[in-house]
Design a protein around this nucleic acid. Structure first.
Length: 933
DNA sequence: ACGCTCACG
DNA sequence: GACGTACGTGAGCGTA
């Protein structure tokens, strides 16, 4: 019979592989491979199920042909029909994702045909093959319990629930749906399916649907005669939702004509070959299964090492760096070859070279790709002759492909969902390419991988990472561009010099990725990377590109006013000093105050200069000295003018009229973002004079700025983490948290609370978040140290949970070298076991990091979900200021935006973390940021 | 390049 | 018992 055409007497088994995987994943604990921590629980379960199935395939029902069928990709033709199809499905768990390709390998290792088809679900392939088997006169058994497949039963096709070992034939289907297999889709179309998000007819379930179909024969007859139905509700539903029901039917109906390129004859059952199967099982390190199958096959089980592989930190690279091996791409054939390489391996490291570090204005000069360690190319597109002539007519260097040709060729690859684009600080490259109409996705980012694994240990720039993890020092960019005044742009660097530098960056990035990818699992920060780092990249890129409108005239007027006031103050200060000096020089000011004028309390810092900080000057001013008081005023104005009203004007983009900040994702150790060029996270707000600078941040005509900020988020997180019932209750009841603290500490009833007592309690609450010390609190409250210590003692007495939290956090940091946020972010504290003041710093940072970091995680989650949540609302998210999000919204959509954004922010911890305190969000709106805040 | 000062959360 | 401190950032300025 072997080799015969499939037909009578043959029996095809079709396994719903994707269902196997999910069942295996959920049934088993999260096993990991011992040598490197790769998650393999689902693969293990999958192999056991396949093995068990093969073992049981004896006797008259044994298959002559078989295949395991998988879903491929998440987008199918059904999504084109209905964008909500399966839209309520959760994302695939992060530790399952890397196991998916391994299950394909497992299938092949068992010598089973492995089928999948882009754009189709496994069910469609199964439907197609089952139809072919039936038409050929053979039998077919579908190994699955998915009711969506029941429409295929009949005419020699049956289903088998492998778990319950239950065969389902036409009668079984009728028992389940109340109709025969041929009418299953009609019933499903009416009943809908919440799991797959099939809408169906509202209020009609399987029972009613079967009743109706049995009465009218089929769905179309039912719908055309819907007006005959007696029950008014039912009648109206069927008439009103007729189209939705028809759509549902199309969604549940399986495609029996998928273009699968395999013949039934090719699916003939073959015995597993010991070689490849043993090799795969051993590679997965499945000890028990390897031994058992080896015994059954009568072969020797391969040896599986029992020790974790050594961590290759700082190990020398396997492939040496060879700059002359990099290719300069100068023709389309070479470019196409590189694109083909990316398609072949499914990933590619990408790096762009540009004329400046400002992504909003930089021009593309070249693109680098790497698909393999040591193998990289440079594609020059924007090199120009240096030293432009008198007419400014810079000439394009010869030997470069036209920019548009290169972009047209690269765009499909850079946007191809099945090719992973790897970058170091990919937000930069993505923004550059976005300006050339390329939407890079999906991405991985070695900087963010390092941040997830190594926050607190070292920086995450390419040079640091290359040195540390590849033992290689990259070519310094300075050697190409020079520095200072004579610095040139990358466009002016000769292609021959540029290529090794540029291609090397892609090579390094790829090598780092190869090393970091498995290390991410070992460090158990995959979820942090996948949910808190990587998805933030496109969100921030869009915020930065949106920018915020800043009114130059407002700033300019303020600058002039500040300049006038400063001149007056400067005059007074010089008069008071009796001599002109540079008020902006702390050194000169210190000498004037403490040497010349002989004021008390001059303290020199480590550089030998007097300290003249605001606290020092305030003390002197409080003693009645005018000069330091004037200097304080002058300094405030000077700060506002130079840092804000002047500098901000230089950041207004000529094309957009807006200011585009850049957020560093891996800048702050705790998970907070940092804003640079310019920093829009420290625009003044605390003093009235400074606050007015926010009036220059405005909405476009017809739009409004809306600010939403978390109320007391860090204290709420502290109350949750440390489990302080009194504080948690106060938050639940929406009470004044500082007043409650004061009341508890000083035994003052709430209605007798004075502002001063409340202020002290507030300082203590914040002190706790910062890793409180008597010295620090004393300085902040300007009270004697002993008194401050007394406050702290009383606070710990009243809220012993705080002390427990601090002790537990310190102990954890000491034994693990890091602390964690509620979402699993790790912040390393390498100096916690040092001696001296360093340890004190590390201790306080360790106390603070889980609280600040958890708050940072929360708002990151909100930002990542925000774009979906406000879709359709004419609004854009512009800025993040740690606990605040600023939006620009069309006037008539303000209330809608506030409602939606608030909902996302308040629920941002769910479902990963169930906070025992509510998160609440305050909202404001106005024509400018001062009003909105 | 580095420290000081000060803006924010 | 002494040490030197509130946590996390970035920018502009003066000084070396």
């Amino acid at each position: 019979m072997a080799g015969d055409k499939f037909g009578k007497g043959h029996h095809l088994h079709l396994v719903d592989g994707s269902a196997f995987i999910f069942r295996a994943y959920h049934a088993l604990p999260p096993l990991t491979r011992k040598s490197d921590g790769l998650p393999v629980g689902a693969v293990s379960g999958f192999c056991n199920m396949i093995h068990k199935m093969i073992e049981g395939n004896t006797g008259p029902d044994a298959p002559t042909h078989a295949a395991v069928v998988f879903d491929k990709g998440s987008h199918t033709f059904r999504n084109d029909m209905y964008d909500q199809y399966k839209a309520n499905r959760d994302e695939m768990p992060e530790d399952l994702r890397p196991q998916i390709p391994l299950t394909r390998e497992a299938t092949r290792a068992f010598n089973l045909a492995c089928l999948e088809l882009e754009g189709y679900e496994a069910d469609d392939i199964i439907a197609t093959l089952a139809r072919q088997a039936r038409e050929a006169g053979g039998r077919c058994t579908i190994i699955s319990s998915d009711k969506d497949l029941m429409q295929l039963v009949g005419g020699g096709v049956e289903m088998l629930d492998a778990m319950k070992n239950l065969r389902i034939d036409s009668e079984g289907v009728e028992a389940k749906f109340g109709v025969g297999p041929d009418r299953v889709v009609d019933v499903q179309a009416l009943a809908g399916d919440s799991v797959d998000n099939i809408p169906g007819a509202p209020g009609i379930g399987v029972k009613t649907a079967a009743l109706l179909i049995n009465e009218y024969g089929d769905l179309e007859t039912l719908l055309s005669r819907a007006d005959e139905i007696k029950q008014p509700k039912r009648r109206e539903t069927l008439i009103e939702f007729a189209e939705q029901i028809r759509l549902s039917k199309r969604l549940v109906t399986l495609d029996t004509e998928t273009p699968i390129e395999v013949t039934l004859e090719e699916l003939e059952v073959k015995d597993p070959e010991p070689g490849p199967l043993m090799a795969f099982l051993a590679e997965m390190e499945f000890r028990t299964l390897t031994r058992r199958i080896a015994e059954q096959m009568g072969v020797e089980a391969p040896e599986i090492a029992d020790t974790p592989a050594p961590v290759a930190e700082g190990a020398p690279e396997a492939v040496p760096f060879n700059h002359s091996a990099y290719e300069i791409v100068r023709d389309m054939a070479a470019l196409e070859a590189w694109i083909a390489r990316a398609h072949a391996v499914g990933y590619v490291a990408v790096d762009t070279e540009t004329t400046s570090l400002n992504e909003m204005t930089a021009d593309l000069v070249g693109v680098c790709l790497s698909t393999e360690a040591g193998l990289a190319c440079y594609i020059p597109v924007g090199h120009r002759e240096g030293g432009d002539d008198l007419f400014g007519g810079e000439k394009r260097v010869d030997g470069q492909l036209p920019l548009t040709d290169v972009l047209n060729a690269l765009k499909p690859m850079l946007e191809e969902p099945s090719i992973l684009k790897i970058g170091q600080n990919m937000k930069y490259d993505a923004k550059i390419l976005a300006r050339y109409g390329v939407d890079v996705a999906p991405i991985d980012d070695t900087m963010l991988m390092s941040y997830a694994m190594h926050a607190g240990l070292h920086g995450h720039g390419m040079d640091t990472l290359s040195d540390r993890y590849l033992g290689h020092q990259p070519i310094p960019i300075k050697s190409l561009l020079g520095s200072g005044k004579s610095q040139i742009t990358f466009a002016e660097v000769g292609i021959a010099d540029a290529a090794p530098y540029a291609a090397e960056d892609a090579d390094i990035t790829l090598r780092l990725w190869q090393q970091f990818k498995p290390a991410l699992h070992r460090a158990q920060v995959t979820t942090v990377y996948e949910t808190l780092e990587r998805p933030l990249v496109p969100v921030l890129a869009r915020m930065e590109m949106a920018g915020i409108k800043v009114d130059r005239d407002t700033l300019s007027r303020m600058s002039n006013a500040f300049a006038q006031k400063m001149a007056g103050l400067e005059h007074e200060i010089h008069a008071l000093a009796g001599t002109p000096f540079n008020v902006g020089s702390p050194k000169q000011l210190g000498e004037i105050l403490f040497d010349q004028m002989g004021l008390e309390g001059g303290k020199k810092g480590k550089t030998g200069a007097y300290a003249t900080g605001a606290d020092v000057l305030e003390d002197l001013a409080a003693q009645g000295h005018d000069l330091p008081a004037r200097v304080l005023d002058w300094r405030q104005l000077s700060k506002l003018k130079s840092t804000y009203t002047d500098a901000l004007q230089d950041h207004i983009n000529a094309e957009t009229g807006r200011v585009h900040t850049s957020y560093s994702i891996a800048g702050a150790n705790t998970g907070r973002l940092a804003s640079t060029d310019p920093n829009l996270q420290n625009i003044p707000v605390r003093t009235e004079e400074g606050r007015r600078i926010r009036e220059a941040f405005i909405a476009e005509p017809g739009k409004v700025l809306v600010s939403l900020d978390y109320s007391q988020i860090e204290l709420r997180i502290l109350a949750h983490i440390a489990g302080i019932d009194a504080l948690k209750q106060a938050f639940r009841e929406g009470q004044d948290i500082h007043a409650i603290t004061a009341s508890e500490m000083f035994n003052v009833p709430l209605d007798e609370m004075t502002p001063d007592v409340r202020r002290q309690a507030k300082a203590i609450n914040f002190g706790v978040i910062y890793g409180i010390s008597g010295f620090g609190l004393a300085r902040n409250l300007r009270i004697p140290r002993a008194e401050a210590q007394g406050f702290i003692d009383r606070y710990f007495e009243r809220f012993p949970g705080i002390r427990d939290y601090m002790d537990a956090t310190r102990d954890f940091a000491k034994s693990n070298g890091y602390v964690q946020t509620l979402f699993g972010r790790k912040i390393h504290t390498p100096e916690i076991n040092a001696k001296g003041p360093k340890a004190s710093f590390a201790y306080r940072a360790a106390i603070n990091a889980p609280i600040q970091g958890t708050a940072a995680d929360v708002i990151r989650r909100a930002m990542i979900r925000m774009e979906n949540a406000i879709e359709g609302c004419p609004a854009r998210m512009l800025l993040q200021v740690h606990d605040e999000l600023l939006f620009e919204v069309e006037e008539d959509a303000v209330d809608d935006l506030i409602a939606r954004a608030r909902e996302v922010m308040e629920a941002a911890a769910d479902p990963a973390v169930q906070l025992s305190v509510p998160l609440t969000v305050d909202a404001g709106q106005g024509a400018n940021w001062a009003q909105a805040h």
